[in-house]
Nucleic acid binder design. Sequence first.
DNA 1: ATTCGGACGGCC
DNA 2: GCCGTCCGAATT
Length: 651
Amino acid sequence: MSSEDHPDRPVEGSLGPIARLRVDLGVMHLDRDFDYLVPDEWLETAVPGARVRVRFSGRLRDAYVIDRLHEADVDSPKPIERVIDQVPPLSPESLALIQDVADRYVGTFWDVARAAVPTRHARAESSVLRKVADSAAAPAPSPAHHPTAGPAADPTWRHYRWPETASPARVVWSSAPASDVVAEIGCLARWKRSEGRGVIVVVPDAADVARARSELTRVIPESNIAELSADIGPERRYREFLRVRTGQATVVIGTRTAVFAPVEDLGAIIMWDDGNDVYRELHAPYWDAREVAAMRSHQTSCDVFVGAPARSVATQWWCRSGWATSVDPKRPSWWNVRCIDEHERARDPAAESARIPSAAWTTARNGLRHGPVLFLVARRGYVPTLACQDCRAPARCHDDSCQGALEMSSGHTTARCGRCGALNGAWTCKECGGSRLRAVHVGAGRTADELGRAFPGMQIVWSEADRIVRSVPDTPSLIVATPGAEPIAEKGYRAVIILDARSVYPSLAGAEQQVRRWFEATRLVAEGGEVCLVASASSLEAQALIRWDSRWFAERQLDQRASAELPPVTRVAEVTGPKAAVQAIGDRIRSDHRILGPVPVPDSHHVRSYLVVPRTQAAAFTRELGSLMRTESTKDSTTRDIRVRMDPRDM
DNA sequence: ATTCGGACGGCC
DNA sequence: GCCGTCCGAATT
C-alpha cells in the first residue's frame, strides 16, 4: 500500500503515537480494538503487525498492533509496556486475512492469529536476523526470471485438458490415473516462480511435505524454500516462518497452516487433496484451509490451484458458480475397472473367502507377476468389531464401568477391550447369555493374514494409521492398506483391489468421501494396471470410478445438495450449547434462515442445531451471528457456552 | 451491624 | 478472562 498524502498527518510518513491493538484475552466480547499510547522508545518498532506487551485491567497481555493513529478514542490511553519481537510477525496482508477469516468463521482475531504465527522462538529470530544482515552486506544477485510457458503447454499435463484460464487463475484439477502429482505441483510452482512471484504449496501431512519439497528443490533450484509444518520442531519452525516473513524464502511448502504464510508478492497457492479432513483446523474457530486459500486469492488476486484424486463437491461448486476453471483428466485407453457384485459373489464356487471373490484373487495373481498389488480395506486392526454369534448384539467389555467395544488382535484367540485393554477370556453376552463371538468386520491385519496364507512366501505389507508404510519397491508383493495409508509404489501398483466397498459413511459427505478414497487408492496404479472393485457396477460411485470421472459424480452430488438446500450451495452454522441458548440464537437472528434440529448431543447436556442460510444472505447472517456472540449477555445467558462452527464438513 | 456471595459491567 | 462494585440475604 502506498503512503497517502493526508493533510492531517503532521509529518509525512510518520506513525501517530497511538496504537490500535487486539489484545489476547480469550473471550469473544473483548475481540475488538483498544487504543494504547506508544512511548517514544517504541515509536519505530510498534508498527502494524508487531506484537506488544500491554497491561490490560491490571495484567500483562500480548497484543497485535492493528494500526497506528494520531488520536485515541479514549481520553487517557495506557502506555504499551514493550514491543516483543525484532520482526513484526504479521504483514499488513496477514492482518487483513486473519481478520477476514475470524469474521467468516465467527471467531476471534487471536484464535486465528495463533494458527497463522508459530510459537515465538528468540534464538530462531536472532539467527534469521543475522542472515538478513549478512545478505544485506553482500546481496546475492537476484536471479533473472524468464517466464516459462504455462502448464497448458507443459508435457507434465499432457493427460489433461486445460481450457483458457482468466487472470488470476483459479483452477481445480482432478488427477489422471497413474499421474505424477508431485511433478504437477512442481510444474505449477516453477511456472509462478519463473514470473518472479512467491508460491505456497499446501499438502495434507508431513510425508507429503517431504516428497513435494524434494521435487520443488529439484525443479526450481534457484528459489529459497521454507518448510512450515508442525513436526520440524519449534525453533526450526519459527526460523522458517521468519525466513518467509523477511523475504528470504520465496516458496513455502507446508501443511494446513502454511496457507497463512506471509509470502511476499504471493503469486499462487497450490493445494493438494482438498477433500482431506486435515484441512479443517481442530481449534476454534475451525477454519478450513481450502476456504482460506480462496479468501486469500480474493484478497490479493493470487492464483489458486486445487488438485485432488477426486473432485470435491466444494470445488465443483467453485466451478459451477464460475469462480474456478475445471481441468479434467483424459481417461487413458488402458483404464479398466472390473466390478464384482453381490450376485456374482454369492454363486462363486471358487470363492476362498466370502469377502474376497475369486476374480479378485485372479487379478492379484496376474498383477503379482510384474510387481506390487494393493488391497484397499475399510478398517484397520485385526478384527475391529465383534458381536454375539447368537443375538448379534455388539460385544461389550465385561467391566461394567467400561463397556468398551471388544476387538481381536493379531495372533490372539482372546477378545480384548478396545477401550480399557482388558482381556475378555470367558465372554458372555449381556443380552442373551451366549458365549460365542463372531467377527462383524475384518480389518487390514486379518486381511493380510488371509492373503499370506493364500500366497505362501509372498512379501506382505500391512499399512494403517499407526503403522504407515510410506513406500514400497517395485517387486512382487501384496500391500494391504486402509484409506489414507496407501504406500506409494515406486513404479505404481500392477493391480489395485478395493474390498469392503459397501461400508457406508452415514454423513452428508459420506458418498463423496467414499469416492475420494477409491480414487486416491486407484490413482496409484501403474499404467496398464488392473483395478478391481468388489461391489456392484450400478451405483453412482462405481460408475464414477469406471469412467474415471469424479467431476461427473461431484456434479450429481451438487445437484442433490442444491435441491436439499445444503452446503456448499447454502451456508451453514452449526450451533452447539445449552438448549435455551441454542434456541435463543436461532430466534434472534433476523436474516433469512431455516433451522435443522435441535438434536441432543450424546454424553452431554447440550443440543446442536444447524442454521441454514441462502448464499446471498451469508455475509449478513455471519455478521449478525458474530455480533450476537460478541454482545455480553450474561443477563439472559444467550451466548454462554455456545460453540459455532461454520460450514462443517461432517453434518 | 457485619459478612458472604452471586450478578454485572468495565477493561483502552 | 479477571476484578471491583453493588445489592440482597444470611449470620452474629
